[in-house]
Design a protein around this nucleic acid. Structure first.
Lengths: 133, 133
DNA sequence: TTATGTGCAAATCATTTGCAAGATC
DNA sequence: GATCTTGCAAATGATTTGCACATAA
C-alpha cells in the first residue's frame, strides 16, 4: 500500500486549494475532518511530499511557507496588502536562465518569478472607503 | 541630527557587504566594534531602514531574511547548496509586469526574479571529490 | 521634558524533534 | 516483530515586544 491516512489527507487537502495555503491553514481544515491529526504530522508530511515532488514549497513570501499543489513551473502574484498568493498562467521564460548564466559564477537550474502588487479585493476596499493605513 | 549611533552602525555595516547578510551576521559583526549593541536593536533598525527604503529586505530565501544595501531593482541568484545570494547585473525586464497584468486580478507594482542553481564554489567541491549525499 | 531609541529578558511564531505508543508489512 | 508513522510536548530558530533607563531634540 501507499500513503498513510494522514499523509493522504494532507495531500488531498492541498489539492482542494487553488490558492497556496500555509501549514496552519491545512492543519485547521484537517482538524475539522480528523480531530486527532496533529500539527507535527502536517508539517512532517508537507516536507515529505515536497521532497517527493508531489507538491511544491513556496518560501518567497514573508512569514510562513506556502504550499502549492501544482508542481509544473509557473509564476506567482503576491498581494502586498493581504498576502494572498495567486498563480499566473503566463509562459515561463526559459530564455532568462541562459541570459542570467552569462552574469554569474555558477550553473542555473531555474528561476522563481514573483509579481508584487495589490489584488483587486484589496484595491476595491481602498478605493471605496478612502485610503489610509 | 539624524540617525542614532546604533542605527548608523547597522546601515554602515550592511553597506560593507557586497553579499546580503542576515540580521544575526550583522549583529555578530557589530558586536566586535560595539560590544553593547543588542540583537533587538539590530532587528529594529533593519526593519526601520527597510521601511524607510534605505535598504531592502529579501524574504525569498528559506530561513532568515537577508538584507540588501542596493535598493535599485535587480535580480538575484541563490545557490541551492550553500544558500549564498548573489546579485545579477542583468537588465530588469519591465515588460514582464505588463504581460503578467493581463492574467491577474490586480495591479502589479513590480516583480522579484530569483535564479536558482549551484554556485561555482559548491560545484567545484562536488566535481573534485565526486558527488554523493 | 517630551519624544525617541536602547538593552535586556520574556514573548511569539513557524518549524523541528525526541519519544512512547499505534499501524503496517 | 521490524519498520514506518503518529500525537504530544518540549526544543529550536527567527523575530518581536514590554519595560525601565538613556539620549537627543
Amino acid at each position: 500500500m501507499n500513503y498513510s491516512r494522514q499523509r493522504a489527507e494532507v495531500l488531498d487537502q492541498i489539492r482542494e486549494h487553488e490558492d497556496h495555503p500555509t501549514a496552519d491553514v491545512i492543519f485547521a481544515e484537517l482538524r475539522q475532518k480528523d480531530p486527532s491529526i496533529s500539527l507535527a504530522t502536517v508539517y512532517r508530511n508537507l516536507k515529505l511530499l515536497s521532497d517527493l515532488g508531489e507538491i511544491r514549497k513556496l518560501s518567497f513570501v514573508s512569514g510562513a511557507d506556502h504550499f502549492d499543489s501544482t508542481i509544473k513551473p509557473h509564476y506567482h502574484f503576491v498581494c502586498e496588502r493581504c498576502g494572498k498568493v495567486y498563480d499566473i498562467p503566463m509562459k515561463v521564460a526559459e530564455a532568462l536562465d541562459s541570459e542570467a548564466e552569462m552574469y554569474i559564477p555558477g550553473a542555473i537550474t531555474g528561476h522563481d518569478l514573483v509579481f508584487r502588487g495589490i489584488c483587486d479585493e484589496c484595491g476595491a476596499l481602498e478605493g471605496s472607503r478612502d485610503s489610509q493605513k
